[in-house]
Simulated assay, not measured.
Amino acid sequence: MSVISQDCDRLGRRAAELMLEEVNTADSDSKTIVIPITFIARGSGGILPKRVVEGAEELVSQLVFCMKLRDFLSGIWAH
């Protein structure tokens, strides 16, 4: 099974930077951020390295935290 590998650390850092930018400025315009990926062609029995799986779990955790923080801060600013 082929996979697309991404730099989870870089993606998490960039997500945090964007969240902090939004908190510290009045700029709420949408942005497109491009972070390179790598296509890894594998056979049908390819197994993901443990590092990739753990990185994805950490990334999801970071993104959930950022979204909750954004929602919390948006609620404060609305009042």
Rank of each mutant, 00 (worst) to 15 (best):
N24S: 15
R14S: 01
R13E: 05
P36C: 00
V34M: 02
E58S: 11
R70K: 14
M67A: 15
E21F: 09
K68M: 11
V3S: 07
Q62C: 10
N24A: 14
T32I: 05
N24Y: 12
A26R: 10
R14Y: 03
V53T: 04
N24P: 13
I40T: 02
D9A: 13
S44L: 01
G75N: 09
F39R: 14
T38Q: 07
L11E: 05
I4Y: 12
C66I: 01
I76G: 06
C8P: 07
H79A: 15
R10I: 11
C8Y: 08
P36S: 00
F65S: 10
I76S: 11
D27A: 07
R14M: 10
L73F: 10
F65M: 14
S74I: 12
V52M: 08
V52W: 14
F65A: 14
S2C: 12
L73N: 13
S5I: 02
C8I: 09
V23K: 13
A16T: 07
L11Y: 01
D71W: 14
D29K: 15
S2Q: 05
S44C: 15
G12P: 03
D71H: 12
V52K: 08
L63Q: 00
L69E: 05
H79F: 11
D7F: 04
S5P: 11
I37R: 08
V52Y: 08
G75W: 04
K68W: 09
A15E: 01
F39D: 06
E54W: 02
V3R: 13
T38C: 02
I40D: 01
D9K: 10
G45D: 11
L59D: 00
L63Y: 02
K68C: 05
N24F: 15
G46I: 09
L69A: 06
V23L: 15
I47C: 01
M19S: 02
E57A: 14
V60F: 04
P36T: 07
R42L: 05
S2K: 08
L11R: 09
M19I: 04
V53L: 01
L18Q: 12
V53K: 07
I33D: 06
S28I: 10
L59F: 03
Q62I: 09
M67P: 06
F72Q: 13
K50P: 05
V60P: 03
I37Q: 05
M1V: 04
S2A: 15
A41N: 08
L11N: 04
R14G: 00
K31H: 07
I35A: 00
R51Q: 10
A41M: 08
D29H: 12
I33Y: 02
A41R: 14
F65W: 13
M1C: 13
